[in-house]
C-alpha cells in the first residue's frame, strides 16, 4: 500500500514538476528571443493575451518584441515602464544609443556606479561630456573616478585642466605634479603649465628641478627657454623665477 502511495505521490510530483518546467507562452517567447527567432517569439507572445496588470517581465518582453519589430515608440514605452535596475539600465543605455539620444545615454551612464565602468566606457563618457560642453559634469565625473582610483593618466591630465579652468589652481598643480612624478606628464603644454604654476606659487626651485629633468631627456632642451619666455616680463623686471 505504502508503495502505491509512494508511486502515486512521485507521479503527482513529477507531473507537477513537469508542469512547472514547461515554460509559459511568455517564457517560451523569451526563450525564442534568446534564440533570435523573432517570428516564433512574436507568435508565441501573441497566442497568450496578457491578463491582469502588466508585470515587469511582460513589459520587458514587450520591449524586446517591439524593438525587434522596429516599433521604437512601443519599445520606448515598454522600457519606460520598467523600474531602474542594472539590467534595465543597460538596455536603456543601448536603446538610447540606437535611437540617437546621447544626452539620455550620458545621464544613464552617470547614474551608474563608476566602479563598474570599463576603461573604454570611462573614455567614452568623459569624451561625450567634453563634446557636449558639460565641463562641470565632466569634472565631477572625473573626480568620482579619481576617488574610486579609476582615473587613467590622460583623464587625470584632463581633470587637471578642468580644475585649472575652474580656478582650483592648487588641486590642478598637485595633480600635474603627481602625474609628472609618475612619469606620465609627457604633454608639452602640461609640463609648461606645471612649471608655470609652481613658479606662480613661489616654488621656483621645484620648477627648476623639473625643467632640468625634462630638458635632460629631450634633444631640443627647449623647456627652460619656453618657461622663461612665458615669464619674460617678470624676468625683464629683474625677478629670478627659478627661486
Amino acid at each position: 500500500m505504502w508503495k502505491a502511495v509512494l508511486v502515486i505521490g512521485l507521479a503527482a510530483f513529477g507531473a507537477g514538476a513537469a508542469l512547472v518546467a514547461v515554460p509559459s507562452r511568455q517564457g517560451y517567447a523569451e526563450l525564442l528571443l534568446l534564440d533570435d527567432d523573432i517570428e516564433a517569439a512574436i507568435l508565441s507572445a501573441r497566442s497568450e493575451p496578457a491578463e491582469g496588470p502588466p508585470t515587469h517581465r511582460r513589459n520587458f518582453l514587450d520591449y524586446q518584441l517591439a524593438a525587434a519589430m522596429g516599433d521604437i515608440t512601443g519599445a520606448a514605452t515598454a522600457l519606460e515602464a520598467l523600474p531602474a535596475s542594472a539590467l534595465v539600465d543597460s538596455h536603456r543605455i543601448a536603446f538610447a544609443h540606437a535611437t540617437g539620444a546621447p544626452e539620455t545615454w550620458l545621464d544613464l551612464q552617470l547614474r551608474q556606479d563608476v566602479v563598474t565602468h570599463s576603461a573604454y566606457q570611462r573614455q567614452e563618457v568623459a569624451s561625450l561630456l567634453r563634446r557636449a560642453g558639460r565641463y562641470e559634469d565632466e569634472r565631477a565625473y572625473l573626480a568620482r573616478l579619481a576617488e574610486a582610483g579609476s582615473l587613467d593618466a590622460d583623464l587625470a591630465l584632463r581633470l587637471a585642466w578642468l580644475e585649472l579652468a575652474a580656478g582650483e589652481t592648487r588641486a590642478a598643480l598637485v595633480r600635474l605634479a603627481d602625474l609628472d612624478d609618475a612619469g606620465q606628464l609627457t604633454d608639452r603644454q602640461g609640463r609648461v603649465t606645471l612649471a608655470s604654476l609652481l613658479i606662480e606659487a613661489g616654488q621656483g626651485t621645484q620648477a627648476d628641478a623639473r625643467v632640468a629633468r625634462w630638458d635632460a631627456g629631450s634633444p631640443e632642451r627647449a623647456m627652460r627657454a619656453t618657461v622663461e619666455n612665458f615669464f619674460a616680463s617678470e624676468i625683464a623686471d629683474g625677478r629670478n623665477i627659478w627661486k
Partner: peptide, 8 residues
C-alpha cells in the same frame, strides 16, 4: 610676437 604654451 612669440608663442604661448601655458594658456591657463
Amino acid at each position: 610676437h612669440g608663442y604661448v604654451d601655458a594658456t591657463h
